[in-house]
Each structure stands twice: as C-alpha cells, then as structure tokens.
Write a protein that binds this DNA or RNA. Structure first.
Lengths: 347, 347
DNA sequence: CTGAAAGCGCTAACAA
DNA sequence: TTGTTAGCGCTTTCAG
C-alpha cells in the first residue's frame, strides 16, 4: 500500500513537484495550473505527508500536553480546552500523563524533544529542574494550573498583573515561562472568609502534591488563626488522601472546617468524616477545591471553589500557539465560590 | 540553536554515521567502537531525531487515541490505560476528542493520516464509514468500548469468544477490526435481573449516543417486560441528558426503575428525579452505568455497573502495538454490578 | 510562473 | 566490523 506522494501528483498533473507544493501551500501559480493541480490532487486523494514537511522544516508543528492525571476531571476539562484550541489551529496534540512525578515528567519531556515537538503546555509537577533541557532546546513552554516552584519569601509574581478585559495579564520578561493560572489566592481567600464568617476558628487545609499558592493563600487568609498542625498534605494516590484526611480529623477533633485543596482530597474528606461519624455540615464544614458535576449530587451538596478548567487549557493553548509574538507573561483566570450545602455555622 | 545530529556524533567519534546509527539501535559493532560512540553521544547530549527516522521508515511510530470526551471519567481512565501501555513501549500518543461526532472523528482521522500515525485506538462514534480512509491507508486500528455499528439481526459476534485466562478472546478473520469491550451484555443482564428480583416490572433505559449493545442487552434481558416507550435516548450534552430523563420520568409515572446507560445520564437521572420529587430508592430505583469515585458519595450511594476503564485502554494499546502478529479478534473484559443504595423494592 | 535540484536526519543496502 | 551512499516526502532557493 504505497502512499500518494507529491511526485505522483506532479506527474499526473504534468508539472513539477515545486509547483504542486506551491499551489497546496497557497503560493503563486497561474489560475490554470492551480486548477489542474488541485483537481488532480483531489482525484488522487492526495494528503501531504507531515513527515516530509516536518523534516524539511525541522519542527513537528504539533503541541505537547503534560498533565498529572487524566482521571482527575479538572485535567480532563483542561485537556479538552487544549484540544479544542489545537483543533481549530489544525495541530495534533501529544498527551502525556506525569502522575505528578518529576521523573516521569522529565522522561516525557525527553520524548517530546525526540519527536521535535517544540511547543508544550504543562501542569508542572513542581521540579523546575526538569525543564532545563526543554528550554535549552528552544522549546516554547507554557505552564498551566501550577507554577513549578515558589521562591520562599519571594512575593507572588502574578500579583503585579493588571486587570485586562476580565482577565489580568502583563508583559513578561523574556526569561520567565508564561503561565496560565486560576486565581487561587482569591478563591482561597473567599472561602476562608466565608468559613470565618460562619464562626469557624479551627480551619484545616488538606492538600495534595503541588499547589503551593493555595497553601500560601490559606495561611495568609487565616492570619493569626493559622495553625501549621492543621495543614496536612497527602501524596498523589486516593489511599494516601484518605489516610491523610482520616488522620487529620482524628487527631484534631476541634477542627470544625476543612478546605480540601483538590478533588480527590474532597472525596477523601467526605469518606473519612463519614467513617468517623462526623456529620457534614453539622460537625464539619467542608469546602472542596474544584467544581464537578457530581458535587451537587453529593450528600450534602458540596460547597466548592470552581476553576475554569476548560478555559485554562484553551488560554494556554492560545499562548503556546502565539509563539514568537509578544506574549503576556501570564494569565490569571477568576475562580468562584459556589455555595451549596456542606458548610454550616460553627457547632 | 542547532540540534546535535548523528553526523556531529559520527565526526566527533571519528566513525561513519552508519556506525553511530547501528550502535544506537543495538546493531553489531566492536565493543571498543561502541564504547566510544556511546561516550561521545552522551557527552554531546545527542538525541536521535524522530523526524529523520520516521521519514526514513515511513511511519511515525506513535499511536493515535480518539475518545468522545475526556471530561467523562470513563474515558479519562481509558486514556490513562493507553498512556501507561504506550509509555512502557516508549511511544508517543496523539489524542483527539471527537465529541461523539462522526464528522469530527473523520477530521481527526485525516489528521492522523497526515501525520502518518499508523496505529490508532478509538472509541468509534457510530459511523463505520469514516474509517474507510484509515483502513485503505493500512492503518492498524483497534476499537475500544464501542463498536461502530451492529448489523441488525446479526447476532453479537463477540458471543463466540472463548474464555481465556479470565478474559474471552478468539482468532479473528482478517477483515474485522479488533475490539476491546466491556461485557455489557452480562452487566446489563445482571442489573436487570437484580431489579426484577426487587419486584420491578416497569423498567426504563436512558441512553446516550452509541452503546447499541447495552440497549440490545436491555431488551433481551427484559424479555416480555420490555416496552419501547421506556427506552429513550439523549444527545451528547448534559442538557440533553437532563431533558430526556425529565421527560421520561414525567410522561411515565409508572416507571419504578431506571437504568442509566452512562455517567452523565446517571447524573441527569438523579437531578431530574430530585426535581420531580421522586425519591431514590423510595419511588425510583436507579442503576447507573460506570462506577466513579463519587458514586459512593452520592445521596443515596449509587448502585452501578462498573467497567474496567483503565484496563480497556491498556488492553487496546497492547493490541494495537502487537500489530502484524496474530491478534485476537477482540477482548471482552468483565463488568461488575456494585450494589449500593439506590435500588429498593418496588413501591 | 515554473522546474530542477539541494538537502532536512536518519536507516538500510551494499562495499570494502 | 565498518564506511559510503541512496533515498524517504517535502519545501525552498535558484535558474530559466
């Protein structure tokens, strides 16, 4: 099964290959020739091979997407956003799942490098190191949803962003990697204020790997009420999340409110409190990061901080496709506190 | 920023390019030469370009994955399965989201063709037609989770499969596209038996696009109790699912049990019955297709038919990677009825 | 406006 | 065991 090549088309149309190439990429040609070439190409069902083109142009043209886990609906939505944008640009997307593990992330980056995929969107797994090779190779990288690391003490760089048509952005120094983020700070602050307003004083945070900005925002929003003992972290697995939730709730019975910094963490919190006989929101108020369709179906319906998952992906894709052009240093998308039934006044 | 090529390595090592190629792909070479080449390659941080190799070999080596919607956790898990298998084979995965729309599916197939991705795993969106070009181009295709269409009257082809280490499989005629499926028939049958056993007689089915096997199994399992009026289909969107559920429950108040043929459908059913003041399981018993972490957190916890999402993907990837070899015509993975709290005796 | 020809990086035949 | 060489399909000068 031999594939139709440009040469076949050229011969069949009685022109040179260069002419065919020109016609197909919108170059100049006499209307007459153009017509004939197009007709022949259509008739032969000719599809230019990306292989040849890519080799010639030294780039794949596709875009890479690295997320921690497609099972997490947030990343599912994010991926859909990226795919939507990529499709409208006609670009293929190579997807990798890192499991939030820098090692796997590095491996996937290597794979993309090998494929000459020179544009990548990634939810970085924390270790900035692994991106060295990518940068050195001149990859266009856009981070989304996370920042690789936060210089301790360094103030949040995105704070300087300006509000611009509903979204904040600013010119970026060439060194930094553009980043698309949800406004965690504001989301967390709103949630904490809400809980404080309900009278809660012992408010815990249950986090997973990553999301340093959420934790920082949590500490800041809580101010003097913050207690490091009430800030706990689980690993990436569901078991680990459950264990962390359970142990937190068991060893600190005075906790009356909990902010779960992610979806799986929220599930774990519900399960654990149920197991411990804690009633939501009677004994424990719960706010979960990230809205999902089923949050409403839960018992009780979960109050959540919603992130625009799809938008995050779409914007990131826009950014990475606008390579070369003057791009904003970052984009900050709004979050929203959706109040349902999982929070109540302090018991 | 010029990339290091095989030529650079060859020069630096004082050998020919062919030797470098051989060494790097495990061909024969004197230990001495091999050592030197490897050392030089490592020192130069050389990465063979997939572009050159692919063009030469006339294939990309990557694998394509087409799913309806990454937002649906089943497909998220499925994708994770594919990615896991692909990673262990060192293959990149190009992902596309079809939205269950044959047109988009066709477009994505075209894109893969253009990229010379010659191995594809797909959850087909129903129209077998669109796979014509792929087959003609000699693509290795594996279907997963769905079959493109069921010849009406034709008995289920997978029924002939043999049980083989916990999984059924059989040699396939070369014409058919290998397919990895969850055992819908058995899943639906079990669920229907269960509902019948609870005394239900008016059992409805709420389906989305696709899944003809589930519907067929439903009719068959219900036997004389089947009523076409109680078998309704929604489009792909959440709104459409809700509308269908709502209208079904409103116009047939005698329905006491409902089988939701998918996750979004299940959500819709819960929402709609809540809206209509129907209590689950008091007034309506509900079984939902596909288990998800939050089914347990629902109120009440949902009884579900679980599919091994990740396995489906993994097996499909195994199959597509074993191209050329004698492959089974299909794989049938077991489903499981997980009884929780959403079903009760007929009111 | 068009065609001939030179590669892009790699592998596989063929020589040595 | 090695090196030389011929392309894979395409784009892009460079002549005509």
């Amino acid at each position: 099964m031999k594939r139709t090549t440009i040469k076949d088309v050229a011969e069949a149309a009685g022109v040179g290959v260069a002419t065919v190439s020109r016609v197909l990429s919108g170059g100049s040609a006499s209307p007459e020739t153009r017509e004939r070439v197009l007709a022949v190409a259509a008739h032969l069902d000719y599809r230019p091979s990306a292989l040849g083109r890519n080799l010639r142009q030294q780039r794949t043209g596709g875009i890479g997407l690295l997320v921690p886990d497609l099972t997490d609906t947030l990343y599912g939505r994010l991926a859909e956003g990226v795919l939507a944008c990529a499709r409208s640009a006609g670009e293929p997307v190579v997807v990798g799942s890192t499991g939030d593990d820098p090692e796997q992330e590095a491996e996937l980056i290597g794979m993309l490098l090998e494929q000459s995929v020179d544009r990548v969107i990634a939810v970085p797994s924390g270790d900035a190191e692994v991106w060295g090779p990518a940068m050195r190779a001149g990859m266009t990288v856009v981070f989304v949803g996370e920042q690789p690391e936060q210089e301790p003490g360094d103030d949040d760089p995105l704070d300087e962003l300006l509000l611009l048509d509903g979204v904040r952005s600013a010119p970026r120094p060439d060194s930094a990697i553009p980043t698309v983020l949800a406004d965690d700070r504001s989301g967390v602050r709103t949630a904490v204020q809400y809980l404080k307003g309900l009278g809660h004083r012992r408010i815990a945070y249950l986090g997973g790997p990553g999301h340093p900005r959420r934790v920082a925002a949590f500490r800041q929003a809580l101010g003097p009420l913050a207690d490091e003992d009430l800030i706990v972290f689980a690993g990436g697995s569901r078991d680990s999340a459950y264990a962390a939730a359970s142990s937190l709730l068991q060893s600190h019975r005075d906790v009356t409110a909990l902010l779960a910094g992610g979806n799986p963490l929220g599930e774990a919190a519900v399960l654990a409190s149920r197991e411990l006989g804690l009633r939501i929101p009677g004994d424990l108020s719960l706010v979960m990061y990230d809205d999902v369709p089923w949050a409403e179906l839960c018992s009780p319906p979960l109050t959540v901080i919603a992130q625009p998952g799809q938008d995050l992906g779409y914007r990131a894709a826009e950014l990475v496709l606008r390579a070369g052009a003057r791009r904003p240093r970052g984009v900050l998308l709004p979050t929203e506190l959706i109040v349902r039934g999982s929070c109540g006044p302090r018991p």
